[in-house]
Design a binder for these strands. Structure first.
Lengths: 213, 213
DNA sequence: ACAAAAATGGGTTGTCCAATCCAGAAAATG
DNA sequence: CATTTTCTGGATTGGACAACCCATTTTTGT
């Protein structure tokens, strides 16, 4: 059996936490396969067989990292999730994501999506963990849209729109990461939100951000 | 310098081609890092140091694979690209992509996007190669939308819409790959095309007429 | 037909890295 | 305070894999 969160001393918990955080950071910066356990060990400031004391193997560490990153991503957005039931809230969420990528100089992509892409075809267990993380993300978006729908302000299926918005976000992040500019993310999210807005009762004559023609 | 397509015998060209095709297939099925040169060698049906006879190192092979996959992806869609200047053509393209993923049982994701995600943070040269491939893909979509725009049938910026559509496609593919079902891809593309359709002349967002459904 | 160039085969090497062992220090428990 | 469990350190092993070498065969050009 693996990680049933064995009884750990306070110091032990702290060390374990440092290892996961360091691993998450390295995997994010360099990619999963470029982050060796030796690197993790050094970055976490632990030594010797510490990593193997807390994790059965690299796979177990990876699963912990996926959990960790899922929590981190969702926690970071939590304040914004609460306001996704208005167009203003959705735009604010969009701005926050774009601004975040800009600060990172468009590096790293999505902490969950990048991992997902790397494990999808050779690690079923990790694939499911990532998929499960995405379900939570999707649910957070869906909740906002469902509230709009319930108030009669949104035509169209909130579930489909939430999933499509998450897809637009992921695709935008990938292209932004590859091109090192925020444009793809901006445009992808704007298109998604413009589409949602076009399905609201208060239909603006012209679409949102980019004025064309 | 590397790959200036040295003078190669017919047999040599054929062998080189087999190696690239085998490498592309393996990298697609297992991911970049899980495809060892030994695997490639065996799959290509060549032996010994053949791989190094045709490529300086794994990096050179990877760059060749990126080129190869870009061509493959674009060639496969070429017939459909020509019709992207009507909603019917766009829907047909969407159906074709969905059907293709269904046949693959939602495995593999995007041949270019998966590679891109894996190399983005640790291989600048490969990152640029993938980015360049995406530009060609984006251009193909843009061409159709620009034609619609030029005919006065499409409001909104064709460039932004093309980029957003490619992002939706990529995000949809990633989620489809992770969840092993075509739904995310379907919904992502439908949302994107619905949005485009809402910006066409024929289909105006009706304000007051029908009841909200 | 005959050199020159290219293609092929298989073996080898050096490195990196995940994983394990064992022994000693620190901390919890009664 | 004793002893049992948990935590920490360093050293080592075994395997995998990228990269290189050289001898032999096949193809190309004249």
């Amino acid at each position: 059996m693996t990680s049933e969160t064995r009884r750990l001393t306070r110091k032990g918990q702290e060390t374990r936490r440092r290892i996961v955080a360091a691993a998450a950071q390295l995997m994010y910066e360099r990619g999963l396969t470029e982050a060796t356990l030796e690197d993790v060990r050094a970055a976490a400031g632990v030594s010797g067989s510490q990593v193997y004391h807390y994790f059965d193997d690299k796979q177990a560490l990876l699963l912990a990292v996926i959990e960790y990153q899922t929590e981190a991503v969702l926690d970071l957005q939590q304040p914004l999730f609460d306001k996704l039931d208005t167009m203003a809230g959705l735009r604010q969420w969009r701005d926050s994501l774009v601004e975040y990528q800009r600060r990172l100089q468009c590096r790293g992509g999505c902490p969950i999506g990048s991992l997902g892409s790397e494990v999808a075809e050779n690690n079923p267990e990790a694939r499911l963990a990532v998929a499960s993380g995405f379900l939570r993300w999707e649910a957070a978006i869906r909740q906002g849209l469902q509230a709009m729908h319930a108030r009669g302000e949104l035509r169209g299926d909130p579930e489909d729109l939430a999933l499509a918005t998450l897809a637009a976000l992921q695709g935008g992040l990938l292209l932004t990461q590859l091109q090192r500019r925020v444009k793809p993310l901006e445009v992808a999210l704007d298109a998604s939100l413009d589409h949602i807005e076009s399905l609201t009762e208060r239909d603006r004559p012209h679409a949102g951000t980019a004025s064309a023609t």
